[in-house]
C-alpha cells in the first residue's frame, strides 16, 4: 500500500536537492520573483518537448530517443518561414504550420523503421536522429536561402549557426496576453497555447484511436487479440510525437530568440526524456500530469543551480549537475524497466 504512494528514488533525490538549493538561494538573496519568472520561461521552453514523448510511450513504442528528427522538422519550418519574412504571431504560427508536413512525413518513415527494430528502439532511434541532424548540416550549408539575416555574409556560404529572431517573431507567443503581478510576469498567452495542446491530447485519449493506442502500450498481447493493429497504431504515435516535437522546437526558438541549427539538436532528446522520467509514472502509462511535474522539477533544479553555482562554486557546475542528473535518471529508469520486464 505504501509502495504505491512512495515516489521513485530519483524524484526524492531531486526534491531534496531542490530544497537545499532553495535554501542556498534564499541565503544569497536571490529575489523570488526572478526565480518564478525564470521558471515560467523554462516551462514554456521545454514543456511541449517533454509532452511530445507521451504518445510514443503510451503506445508502447518507448522513449523517443529520436526526438531530434522532430526538432529538425521544426527547424525546417522555421527557416522557411523566416526566409519569406514571417513576422509576429503570424510568423510563429506559420513556422509551426510549415513544419507539420515535414514532421508527418519524417515521422511516418521513422515509425516504420522503429517497427522493424523492436526491442532495441532506443539505440536505433538515437543514431537515426544523429544521422538526420548531421545530414541536415549539409543542407543548411548548401540550401539556397537568401534572407540577409539568415546567411553568412562574408566568405562563408549557407545559413548561420544561429539565426536571431529579433525582427521576426521573437517572443511573440511570450508577449501574447502577458500581464504582471507585482514583479512577476505571467505569460498567459503561452500557457494558454500549451494548455490547448494538452487539451487536444486529452481529448484524443477519449477517442477510439486513443483508446486503442493506450491499450497497445498497456498490454500488447491483449491489444493484438482484440482488434488493434499494433504496427499501424504505433506508427501513428510516432507521427504524433514527431509533430509535437517540431512544434516544441518552434516554441523553444520563439522563446529563446534564436533558431539553433547544425549540431544543436543532437542531444535534444536526453533532457526531455530525463524530465519525463523524473515525473515518475508508476505504471506503463504516462499521464499529462507526470510530464508537467517532471518538467517543473527538472527545470527548477537547473534554474536554481545556476545562480548558486555562479556565486558559490564554479559557474560550469550547473551544467555538470545537469549532465550527471540527466544521465543518472535515464540509467536508473532503464534498470528499473528491465527489472519490471523480467529481462534480468
Amino acid at each position: 500500500m505504501i509502495k504505491r504512494y512512495l515516489p521513485p528514488l530519483p524524484q526524492i533525490i531531486i526534491i531534496v536537492f531542490i530544497i537545499i538549493l532553495l535554501g542556498l538561494a534564499i541565503k544569497i538573496d536571490i529575489p523570488a520573483s526572478s526565480l518564478i519568472n525564470d521558471l515560467f520561461i523554462r516551462l514554456i521552453l521545454n514543456c511541449v518537448l517533454v509532452i511530445s514523448l507521451i504518445p510514443m510511450v503510451n503506445s508502447g513504442a518507448g522513449l523517443n530517443f529520436g526526438l531530434p528528427i522532430g526538432a529538425v522538422a521544426g527547424l525546417l519550418g522555421m527557416v522557411m518561414t523566416a526566409q519569406f519574412g514571417g513576422k509576429g504571431l503570424t510568423g510563429f504560427i506559420l513556422s509551426i504550420a510549415v513544419s507539420i508536413p515535414f514532421a508527418v512525413v519524417s515521422g511516418a518513415v521513422y515509425g516504420r523503421m522503429l517497427n522493424r527494430v523492436k526491442g532495441r528502439e532506443e539505440i536505433a532511434a538515437t543514431f537515426t536522429g544523429f544521422s538526420i541532424v548531421s545530414i541536415m548540416c549539409l543542407f543548411w550549408v548548401v540550401a539556397p536561402f537568401t534572407h540577409p539575416q539568415m546567411i553568412w555574409v562574408l566568405g562563408r556560404s549557407g545559413l548561420r549557426n544561429t539565426i536571431g529572431l529579433r525582427g521576426f517573431w521573437e517572443k511573440s507567443l511570450y508577449n501574447l496576453l502577458q500581464f504582471k503581478a507585482g514583479d512577476i510576469i505571467i505569460p498567459a498567452g503561452s500557457l494558454l497555447f500549451i494548455g490547448i495542446i494538452l487539451l487536444c491530447l486529452y481529448f484524443f485519449s477519449r477517442t477510439r484511436t486513443g483508446m486503442m493506442m493506450n491499450a497497445a502500450g498497456e498490454n500488447e498481447s491483449f491489444a493484438r487479440i482484440n482488434g488493434v493493429d499494433i504496427a499501424k497504431i504505433r506508427k501513428l504515435s510516432v507521427i504524433m510525437s514527431t509533430v509535437l516535437a517540431s512544434a516544441g522546437t518552434c516554441i523553444y526558438a520563439q522563446q529563446y530568440g534564436f533558431i539553433e541549427l547544425y549540431s544543436a539538436p543532437l542531444m535534444a532528446a536526453f533532457p526531455a526524456i530525463s524530465a519525463l522520467l523524473l515525473g515518475g509514472s508508476s505504471g506503463k502509462r504516462v499521464f499529462l500530469r507526470h510530464a508537467l511535474l517532471g518538467v517543473i522539477l527538472y527545470q527548477s533544479l537547473y534554474l536554481l543551480s545556476l545562480p548558486v553555482a555562479n556565486m558559490l562554486l564554479v559557474p560550469e557546475m550547473a551544467e555538470i549537475i545537469r549532465m550527471i542528473v540527466t544521465s543518472f535518471i535515464i540509467l536508473y529508469a532503464l534498470a528499473k524497466k528491465s527489472e519490471e520486464r523480467g529481462d534480468v
Binding site: E218, S221, I225, R285
Partner: peptide, 9 residues
Amino acid sequence: RRDGLLPEN
C-alpha cells in the same frame, strides 16, 4: 490476466 484483460483499466 496477461492476455485477456487490461488490468489497470
